[in-house]
Design a protein around this nucleic acid. Structure first.
Lengths: 228, 228
DNA sequence: ACATTACATTTATCATATAAATATGCATTC
DNA sequence: GAATGCATATTTATATGATAAATGTAATGT
């Protein structure tokens, strides 16, 4: 758990809101009541409320109190909010939504990576590739290695908005194995696939890099949709 | 300007950080100093600090003080952060990054919209279409009408992560006209284009909807890159 | 040289008081 | 009767002072 009281309350309330304990549009307990319930001071409570409103989950106004915002206001790309969503309502439908975003983003990121990756980034990708092959022999966690490789592609894209999505992709992949119980199908276990992607990016072959990622995600999406 | 002191300070500091007034990795003025500088109480100051740290811009720890986080920690999809970025360092390069994200997202959103749009959403899109044609005759702001139409596509996708990006696309389009000084080229002024997109979505023709948006954004991106 | 302790600084928390905002109901006016 | 203005009660917003906890740094001891 987070160390300080403010963050603890932020997480507790954030999770509760996402879970639906405080329905959208309704008023949450007032500042004073929250203090009582969680036995902390007003300062800590108010700061937690501010953090949640900064993430779009709630808004607070005098007299009206603290109200839960509609989901469209939530900062879904905030890693805390993502974490709460995953913790509270994981579902195959959610996985589909995640994968649709990946399907939109990652092929483009691979394309950009092929066009823009620096030599240093190529080296890091090669290291990531090595980690995947090691993982196959059980030396390292397979999922972590995969995520690391995919994150490197996002980073190498050079577009800060793609880079920002590393946490998103991380979350998406971690939820995916809850349902598929294997990395295969989501992101091919076979390291030869990753080698192909790596070579395409290294050689600046943008369209091949794009197509490789596109195809594997297309397959993943089809698999998920077949199970819905 | 925002009404309450906390939000005012949040915006002032957020903007200043993004602008680079407080370089990344450096310590910001301490709580006490911020109170003095802005002549507000510690409560308000601390709450602003909490909001900024909720958005990933800063982190604060005892003794170490308030430090500016690396840009990779910033929640770039937060509409406040976006606003500050646009306000502080608009550039053609930024526009390119924006458009790359749109290029990744919007064709897919159009495809999903064609597959999933509800009758009510189709109606709303038709209204949006009407607003564009009205705007052409000067009755309404052209840009707003365009943004409204594009947002409807995102909403109709049914994927909450795409829906969340309405603010992003809004920001992207508003910055785009600063450089192109026209909506044309970014999102075809000619309403016939939008009619085509609308019809494709209405008829459930996913691939056509996707291709239409893909093509217009491809063109926009080429235009931007030619000017870099 | 290393570990331990003491200290100083900064944020974190608590408590209390006052101000400002605003929804609600009431009265007043036309 | 409808609309407008006003009083009031409730809730958050702000201010302030005091204490606690965390943590980097320096002093100390072995």
């Amino acid at each position: 758990m987070s160390k300080n009281l403010t963050q603890q309350l932020t997480h507790k309330l954030g999770e509760a809101i996402v879970k639906g304990d405080y329905p959208i549009g309704t008023r949450m307990p007032s500042e004073a009541v929250l203090c009582e319930q969680f036995e902390i001071s007003r300062s800590a409570t108010r700061e937690a409320v501010k953090m949640l409103s900064a993430k779009g989950l709630i808004s607070s106004r005098p007299k009206q109190g603290i109200t839960v915002n509609p989901e469209t206001n939530w900062n879904l790309y905030d890693s805390d909010v993502l974490e709460w969503i995953l913790k509270s309502k994981p579902s195959l439908h959610l996985l589909k939504e995640f994968t649709q975003v990946r399907f939109a983003i990652e092929p483009m990121a691979a394309k950009l990576a092929a066009e823009n990756a620096t030599p240093a980034q190529i080296n890091q990708m090669e290291t990531a590739l090595y980690r995947i092959s090691e993982a196959q022999e059980g030396l390292e966690d397979q999922l972590d290695a995969h995520i690391n490789f995919l994150n490197m592609i996002l980073v190498a894209s050079g577009n800060r908005f793609f880079i920002q999505l590393t946490q998103f992709v991380d979350a998406a992949l971690r939820v995916s194995i809850r349902y598929t119980n294997q990395v295969k199908g989501i992101s091919n276990t076979d390291v030869t696939f990753h080698v192909k992607v790596f070579n395409a990016i290294k050689n600046g072959d943008a369209s091949t890099a794009q197509k490789l990622i596109y195809d594997v995600l297309s397959e993943a999406l089809t698999l998920i949709e077949s199970r819905l």
